[in-house]
Amino acid sequence: MSQRLIHSIVVSGLVLLLSGCHLDMYDQPKNPPLTSNAFSSDSSSARPLPEGVVARGHARTDELLYTGKTQGKFSVFFPFPVTERVLRRGQDRFNTFCSPCHGRLGDGNGMIVQRGFPRPRSFHNDTLRAEPPGYYFDVITNGFGRMYSYAASVKPEDRWAIIAYIRALQLSRRVPVETLSPDERALLIRNNP
């Protein structure tokens, strides 16, 4: 009797120990994001779309919104109204993706430039001030010289928001003092004694 009891305890103990080691639900045979996969030639589980395929909801028919052009020429208009919300989003995206090189003020003296990256032209020079928004859109989307494309990290809507913010930066350098309200003038004097 007692021997059977001991036996059953020992056996159930062993079974418990063994069953604690099953890991098949921890690593299931599926492909979560960012995993490798021996099946594909580049060993990544993420597959690029075959050429010419358009995913549902991703048809890019709006020429202005997605290329910055109208009838093949750089657009002078934005595809949507520039509101304060758009400007704030633009500021946030600009500081994240552009300021490392172009600097927070857009003068081309960001931290990465200080560490040896080629210095881009300042956004405040006359040629760049005269470029239409569509030109900026094209640079962000397709890159420019040694600057890589940011199409993969910045969505088209955010690219336009960034351009609106660059316009605000450009404007901020050339506002005649006379056009400021008394409050704004007082603030200016207080900040630049």
């Binding site: 960012l34 993706f97 490392p100 990465i112 560490r115 040896g116 990256f117 040694r146 993969a152 990290s153």
Partner: peptide
């Protein structure tokens, strides 16, 4: 700059080689 999808998707994302090259092509 590197973990681009963190505010929009379930995964934060590890930057692809391209992201490193935006800077390390030159420095």
């Amino acid at each position: 700059y590197c973990h681009v999808s963190v505010t929009e998707a379930s995964f934060a994302g590890i930057p692809p080689t391209y992201t490193c090259m935006t800077c390390h092509s030159q420095i």
